[in-house]
């Protein structure tokens, strides 16, 4: 599934974008499935805005975002839901777990939508990221690092062609970051999917095929 942006300018950043040279905003770019894209951006330049726009959470922008030549602005809610369950997965910067559900339930509520990952598989992933003792803990009681790891596993429990990530390891230590990267890479390769990761500083988390300065 190809991702393309044509002249996209978020309305809140209109004035900033017009004076700055941007690799993503107000440009015509496209990325193919299987590519690993790193979007580097200082704070306030719209990393989270980019992820939200690509995921269809925001439509306050000019220009066009297209997933496989279908503009997001013309995609209805039902088609958008299909896109989010079968084609695009996301790891939010603010995790966005359900605070009243347990760690396991937060993963399972996503897993059940497509049922392409078994319970055993999902449990194993949680174990790999060191959450075996936290599966029955309510989301609101988890630390940020634990929440982030749950969000990572949740994002992997569906089929996808693109995995969007917004500062996915900001609350993890080096060891957990490594474990998360290994898991993500493993699953991404299974799906032959593309990655688009937005972060503040340069990094070598993944073997990026392209780096874009936002």
């Amino acid at each position: 599934m190809k991702l393309s942006l044509q002249g996209v300018i978020p309305l809140p950043l209109r004035e900033k974008v017009s004076v700055a040279k941007s690799g993503m905003w107000n440009s015509s770019v496209s990325f193919n499935k299987g590519e690993y894209i790193f979007v580097q951006a200082p704070s306030g330049t719209g990393k989270t805005t980019l992820i939200h726009i690509l995921y269809g959470l925001r439509n306050d922008y000019t220009g066009e975002v297209k997933w496989q030549d279908k503009a997001l602005t013309t995609t209805d809610n039902e088609a958008l839901a299909t896109l989010r369950t079968k084609n695009i997965s996301v790891i939010f910067q603010d995790m966005r777990l359900f605070p009243e559900l347990t760690a396991w339930e937060n993963v399972d509520i996503k897993r059940r939508l497509t049922n392409t990952v078994t319970e055993a598989q999902a449990n194993e992933w949680l174990d790999r990221l060191g959450l075996q003792a936290k599966k029955n803990s309510i989301g609101a009681t988890l630390s940020y690092g634990e929440q982030q790891r749950v969000a990572i596993v949740r994002a992997l429990t569906q089929p996808f062609e693109w995995l969007l990530m917004d500062e996915p390891f900001s609350h993890l230590d080096h060891a957990n970051t490594k474990k998360a990267i290994d898991l993500i890479l493993e699953i991404v390769k299974i799906h032959n999917a593309g990655i688009l990761l937005a972060d503040l500083d340069e990094n070598n988390y993944f073997p990026y095929t392209q780096t874009v300065i936002l």
Partner: peptide, 15 residues
């Protein structure tokens, strides 16, 4: 809040 999150996670409005 839960509805918004569910939609973001991929649940369709129809569902």
């Amino acid at each position: 809040h839960s509805l918004t999150l569910l939609l973001q996670v991929g649940y369709s409005p129809h569902y």
